[in-house]
Nucleic acid binder design. Sequence first.
DNA 1: TTGTAAGCGTTATCAG
DNA 2: CTGATAACGCTTACAA
Lengths: 334, 334
Amino acid sequence: MTMSRIAKIAGVSVATVSRALNYPEKVRPELRNRILEIARQYNYVYHAAAADLKRQKSNAIGVLFPTTIGPLFAETLMAIQEKIQEHHMALIVGNTMYSKAEEARLVKQFQERRVAGIIFTGYGLGQENLIRNLMRQNIFCVVTYENLEDTDINYVGFDNFKAAYDATNYLISLRHKRIGLIIGPYRKMGRLLKRFKGYQQALKDHGIQFDAALVVSTEPGLLEGKQAMRQLLHLPEPPSAVFAVSDHLAIGALSSIKQAGFQVPGDISLIGFDGVELAAYCDPPLTTVRVPARDMGRLATEVLMKSINNGVKRAMQYCLDADLIIRKSCSELK
Amino acid sequence: MTMSRIAKIAGVSVATVSRALNYPEKVRPELRNRILEIARQYNYVYHAAAADLKRQKSNAIGVLFPTTIGPLFAETLMAIQEKIQEHHMALIVGNTMYSKAEEARLVKQFQERRVAGIIFTGYGLGQENLIRNLMRQNIFCVVTYENLEDTDINYVGFDNFKAAYDATNYLISLRHKRIGLIIGPYRKMGRLLKRFKGYQQALKDHGIQFDAALVVSTEPGLLEGKQAMRQLLHLPEPPSAVFAVSDHLAIGALSSIKQAGFQVPGDISLIGFDGVELAAYCDPPLTTVRVPARDMGRLATEVLMKSINNGVKRAMQYCLDADLIIRKSCSELK
DNA sequence: TTGTAAGCGTTATCAG
DNA sequence: CTGATAACGCTTACAA
C-alpha cells in the first residue's frame, strides 16, 4: 500500500495524503480522518527510504561504541535510546571492537544511510579529522566519554584526568605510598591516557616517586584484572593499595587478592573506576569513581539534536562530574 | 556527488557506474577502474535509501531487546553484530524496556525502514501473531531465548524448563528440601514461566511439597535480589538453598546472606542462572546455569540470513544447551 | 560490454 | 485547502 493508492481510493491527490499524514493541521479534519481511516484499513506503512531520498536526509542517527559488553557503555546506550525515541528518530548502532577498520566501515555505512548525526562513544585517539570531515558533509557529531582540547567539536565528557587524580589522591590521603595501577591500553585511548596522567600527577604532587613496576597495562576484563593483580602481588615489594581503572579490572583484582590469602582493605586497599552498580555488591563493597554514563548519553543526544535542528553553530562542550564513591575497600595504611 | 554526476564525468551512463560499483565483473576492468577512481576523487558516497527504494527492500535488519543493560543481552547483541557485519548489513536496534507499546513503536519503525528481518530477543508472551503478521509482509523473523511451541516460527533458544529443572535437581541431589526461588516477573515472560515450572517439576519428581512462601517474584536487578533474599531469610523456616534465576539476582542475594551473617555455602547454598563471567569472580564463585547467549546471537543471525536469502521456507528451530556450571556456592545439606 | 529509460514512494513547489 | 507535477538517486529490463 502506498500513498498514491490511498489517494486513489480516497479520491484525492497524493499530496493531500502526504499532508494528512505529516501535517494533519493542513488538511480539513473531515477529509483527514477519512484518509487516516483508509490508511489504517489497508495497513499502510510509511516508506521511510522514499522520504529520506526526497528530503535528502534521514531521521536516523548512528552511534558508535567500542563494545556494548560492560555495563557502562550499555547504560549510555540505553540513555541515548530513550532520548532518541522521544524525538521519534531511529538508531543505528555499531560496535567497533576497538578496531579502526571496523570504525571506518561503520562510519561509511552511516554516511550511506545519510544519518542526521553520529555519536562517538569511547572514542579513540586522533580521530578529530574524521569528525571534521563528517561535519563538512553536514553530519553532526558528538563525542562522549572524553573532553577534547579542540574547540570545534561537540563533546559531553567528564574530566578523566581529575577523576584519576582524585582517586589516587584519596589513596595517598590514607597514607599509601606504594600505589599500584591496573589500567587498560592507555597508549591507544585518550581517556585512559588522561587517567594515567592523573595518577602520575597525584603522586608527583605529594612527592611520591613514580615506579613503573607498579603499573600494569592490560586489556580490560575480569580475567585480565586478576592476572594483573597477581603480577603486582609477586613484586618484591608489592603495593599497599591498588587503583584499578575499571570496576571489572578491580573485581578481577579483588578475587586475586583474596585467593592469595590477603584481606581487602586490611592488607591491600583497592579502588575501582566506573561506578557500576555491581561494585556496591562486592565483598567488601568497592570504593570507586562514578562515571556519569547515563547522563552523558542523555546529554550527548540532546546536544546532537540541537545541532541538527539549529544547523551549524559553535560547538557545545560539557564536562560532567565523576565523583568518588567511598565504600569499604580502602583503609588507612598502618 | 551522485552516480549520474560520476557518469557524466567519466563519459559513461549511470547504469555503467552502478554496475562498476555493484557488479565489478560486469564492467571492462579498465573502464571500471576509471569510474572507481573518479568516485574516490569526488568522495562519492552511495545512497542507500535510493537503492532501498528502488529495490523495495533494505539491507538493514532490526533487533529488539528488552534492555541491553545486563551482560547477557549485551553479549547476544555483540554476537549478532559481528555476524551482521560479516554480511555487510546494517543493524537497527531497539530497547523495548519490557513495554508492549514501545515494542509496537519499534516494530513499526522497522517496517517503515523496510528491514529485511527482525530478531526478537527476550521475547514476551503471546506475540506469535505479531510475528506472523510481519512474516506475511515478507519480513523474516527469528526469536531467541525461547523455544516456542509453534512450528511455523524461527527460533534459536534453549530449554528453559530443563535448565531450571537441572539446577533444582542439583540442589535436591545435595539433599536440600527447602529450596527458595528468586525469579523475575514470570507471569509476563514465557521463558521465566518455563523456568518456574522446571523448578516445580523437579520438586514434584522428588516428592517435595511446593511451598509458595519460598518463591519470591521480583524485578530483575541486584537490589531486588538482595531484598528478595532478605525476605526469604526472615521466613519462620528459611530455605537451606536458594535458586536465583539470574546471576544478578544471585549476586544481590549473596550480599544479603553475608550481611545477615550467614555463610555460603555453609549455611545456605546458592545457585544462579545465566553464567555471566562475573559469577566466577564472586566469593564464593557462583554455581550457575550457563545460557548460550553468544551462540544464540550468532545462530539466530545465521538463521535470519538464510531465511532472507532462501525466501520462505519452513521454520528453522534450534534448541541449544544450557549447562550447569558447578562452582563453590552449593554444598550438601548436613 | 554499454546505454536507454522507466520507475520505486515520497515531498515540495506552484498554481488554482 | 487541494491538486498536478517534478524531482530525489538508484536499479534493472531491454535494447543496441
